[in-house]
Simulated assay, not measured.
Amino acid sequence: IPQEIGKLSRLQTLVLRNNSFYGEIPRNISRCSKLIMLNLGRNKLKGNIPAEFASLNKLEEMHVFFNNLSGEIPSCFGNFSSIRLISLIANNFHGTMPDFLGKLGNLEILELTQNNLSGAIPALVFNLSSLRNLELSLNQLEGPIPSSMGFTLPKLEVFNLGANQLTGVLPASVSNLTNLQLFAVDTNNFSGEVPSFGSSQNLYWLGLGENCLGNGKLDGLLFMSFSQNCSALQLLQIDDNQFGGVIPRYFGYMSSLLYLTMSRHLIHGIIPVEISQLRSLQELSLQQNHLTGEIPDSIGEFELLNELHLNENQLSGKIPSCIGNLTMLTKLSLGANNLHGSIHPVSERSSFCPS
Rank of each mutant, 00 (worst) to 15 (best):
H344S: 15
G244E: 07
L11I: 11
L128S: 02
S231I: 04
N116D: 07
P2G: 13
L124T: 15
S30R: 05
N106D: 10
T292E: 15
E210V: 08
N211E: 01
S225A: 11
I247M: 13
N179A: 12
F21Q: 01
L69P: 07
N68Y: 12
G102Y: 05
K318W: 00
N139I: 04
Q288K: 14
N229C: 00
S256M: 05
L45A: 07
S30W: 07
L104M: 13
I49E: 11
P26N: 01
F100Q: 04
K58M: 01
K7M: 12
N92W: 00
Q287H: 14
G162K: 08
F183T: 10
V15M: 01
N211L: 07
L308T: 10
S148C: 00
L257N: 03
L117Y: 10
M149S: 10
R249S: 13
F223W: 15
R31F: 14
E312W: 08
L85R: 11
M97K: 07
V169W: 00
T167N: 14
T292D: 04
S55H: 07
P296W: 05
G95P: 04
K58F: 01
N337F: 04
L203S: 04
I323G: 09
N306R: 14
I89G: 05
N48V: 10
V15S: 15
P146M: 10
P74V: 11
L128Q: 02
K318P: 00
D99H: 12
F151I: 13
S280E: 13
S30M: 09
M262F: 04
K318M: 12
Y259E: 13
L8P: 09
G102S: 10
L59C: 07
L35T: 05
N337E: 09
N127K: 06
R279P: 01
S321G: 11
N43S: 04
N229W: 03
Q277Y: 06
L138S: 14
H309E: 09
F302P: 03
I270D: 08
L180K: 11
L206N: 10
E61G: 10
L40C: 00
L141S: 05
Q234I: 01
T261L: 11
L14N: 02
L45C: 08
S256D: 12
G341Y: 05
I319K: 08
Q165T: 03
L170T: 04
T113R: 15
P2E: 07
L11A: 11
N67H: 07
N337S: 11
L339S: 10
R249Y: 09
L59P: 06
K103W: 02
E111W: 07
I83W: 00
L218M: 01
L310K: 06
C212N: 14
F190H: 10
N133G: 15
F77P: 02
